[in-house]
Design a binder for these strands. Structure first.
Length: 333
DNA sequence: CGACTCATCCGCCATC
DNA sequence: CAGATGGCGGATGAGT
């Protein structure tokens, strides 16, 4: 969230990922509203916003969304751009909705890509960033690791698309029915890379605690190993194993946050056979050891700002797809 | 941390 | 002919 950015735009991802649709079977997300710059953020009509999280929260996110940007100088602050690039490099899905595409462009994440942008923003975007091509027809574009939308209303579609892609059509439909007027039975949106791939992803998320190998996921998607690799990278922006590793770390982070389980136990619960593997990957992804991560969060939890909320890092349990045996850790999940 | 094994994944290429 | 597919093999890196 940014100072002087439109309230409507800023609220879009909060509306989608913060919607409480658990009763209709939607997954719960841990939504981490992040202040993109320090200080109080003033929005449309003088409304003042205060985001409970700082930039370091980007390291814990599976999806990072820039919902808006202001029209005036100065540009996005460099620490934010660094954090965005780092999250992207570590496999997070990055989305720029409406004016938020300027934030992604400033971070260099749109170079050489075709993106969606509203007619108001398209000329300025292409002038300031010659490497970026705007598709004037697109409401939103999923480019695998980067999603863009033309304006905040299409931003709702883009967010629902992300939900569908990562958590399945049922999840998207459950959320959509609360915020859009009419939805087709499929959730109103076509899958990114084909239902087969989505199914394999949903299966993997529901069985993170098992030892999954890429060959088995390919079989589940009814694709050859080679084609699965290719399609996966095109759709998700990372190799299957890289993606799997990041999902495992995200879940481990939650277990570290919400439980007192030992690192050894957590490692097994998220699909590592030993804690050594978890520790090594954990440090590479988040920069700290699991223990340090846990204690730093415990320190922060003492502050009044920490919400009891949920995480946009994504609860990986598409209803139905994960099966009855899907793990449901702790109360803070 | 180092040594070891083996899965992964990407370029290449024939084929569909 | 263009584009997608899938097998092969080796460098790489993940896991133990």
């Amino acid at each position: 969230m940014f100072d002087q950015a439109p309230m409507f735009d800023t609220s879009v991802p909060v509306g989608v990922f913060g919607a409480d649709c658990a009763a209709s079977g939607a997954p719960k997300f841990r939504l981490l509203p992040v202040a993109g710059e320090p200080g109080m953020l003033t929005s449309t009509g003088g409304v003042q916003l205060r985001a409970p999280h700082a930039l370091d929260a980007l390291r814990r996110a599976g999806v990072v969304i820039a919902p808006s940007w202001r029209s005036r100088q100065p540009g996005p602050p460099e620490p934010l751009l660094r954090a965005l690039r780092q999250a992207h490099g570590e496999g997070a899905l990055i989305a720029g909705l409406g004016s938020g595409v300027f934030v992604l462009a400033a971070a260099g994440l749109l170079d050489g890509r075709k993106v969606a942008a509203s007619c108001r923003h398209a000329p300025g975007l292409m002038t300031a960033y010659p490497g970026v091509t705007v598709d004037p027809e697109a409401l939103f574009i999923d480019d695998g690791d980067v999603v863009t939308s033309a304006g905040p209303v299409a931003g709702v579609d883009a967010c629902l698309h992300i939900v569908q892609r990562m958590w399945g059509a049922d999840a998207a439909a459950a959320i959509a029915c609360g915020i859009t007027p009419a939805v087709r039975p499929d959730g109103g949106r076509a899958p990114v890379a084909g239902g087969a791939l989505d199914e394999a992803v949903a299966y993997a998320l529901g069985h993170l605690d098992d030892t999954l190998d890429v060959g088995a996921l390919a079989m589940r998607a009814h694709l050859s190993r080679r084609t699965f690799d290719r399609r996966f990278r095109a759709a998700v922006g990372a190799s299957p194993l890289q993606w799997l590793g990041r999902q495992r770390i995200l879940r481990a982070q939650r277990l570290l946050e919400d439980t007192d389980l030992t690192v050894e136990v957590i490692a097994r619960q998220v699909g590592f056979t030993t804690a050594v593997s978890l520790r090594r990957l954990f440090r590479r992804v988040s920069g700290v050891s699991p223990q340090d991560y846990r204690s730093s969060l415990r320190d922060k939890a003492a502050l009044p700002l920490e919400p009891a909320g949920r995480s946009l890092t994504g609860d990986p349990h598409p209803p139905g797809a994960a099966g009855p045996a899907a793990p449901r850790p702790g109360p803070g999940w």
